[in-house]
Amino acid sequence: MTQQQALYNYALRLGDNSLILSARLSEWCSNAPFLEEDLALTNMALDLIGRAQAMLKYAGEVEGKGRTEDDLAYRRGERDYYNHLIMELPNGDFAYTMVRQLFVSTYELFFFEELQKSTDATLAAIAAKTLKEVKYHHLHAKDWVIRLGDGTAESNARVQKAVNALWMYTGEMFEMDHADTMLLKEGIAVNTDNLKLGWIQMVTQILALANIDLPADGYMQTGGRKGIHTEYLGHILSEMQYLQRAYPDATW
């Protein structure tokens, strides 16, 4: 693997994570528990599309084959998508979506804080912009997880169930592969190993405020980085890519 390939993979994966989570969040549009929350979820979906656009555009530039962000989003099959599995899981109920938001945004808080310092100027600039958005996503998720966890018996049970179900998808965010280690040496990538402790401390603290028990350590699901996904991703893509695939000569 050349450094160029590694950087392409790196930007692509970051783009895929944003794109697929934005696809899930946007499914809440006109489905949220009340209007204000509908707008908040749409807002976060919009932030994530913007981030995906920037990352995929950069991936295309690094690759140097003239592919645009739309080519990468709409003309790639599921085996060539590299997002973490947690992003593609169906929304579930509002508690499930909020717990996922908490796990992901807490991770991103630490991740983009570090990526800001990347020696790659483009990644650093995207990270700086992203960090502002992620701070809001984190606050929003934290607020809801605490409110729901400390709300009624029903809402507490739903949050606990979501935490238990999503826990095994959190390990993947901290994996390091060949591309990561290669770029880490150049000061381009983030050492996600170093983020683990901060993540677990912050999540533990928030779940404690929410009266939610931390699940026991267990097996962590993996595969996204190799393009081995859950059954759900194919369906996201077949909807998302429908027009581009059905009318390959059209521009929209």
């Binding site: 549009c29 599309i49 995929l56 739309d70 996201i236 998302m240 059209a250």
Partner: peptide, 20 residues
């Protein structure tokens, strides 16, 4: 979920958000 480009999806989502 079927908007044909990233830009198209952004515009549509932002529009629906305005309506809300």
């Amino acid at each position: 979920t079927r908007a044909p480009s990233l830009r198209a999806k952004q515009i549509l989502l932002a529009k629906i958000q305005d309506e809300g």
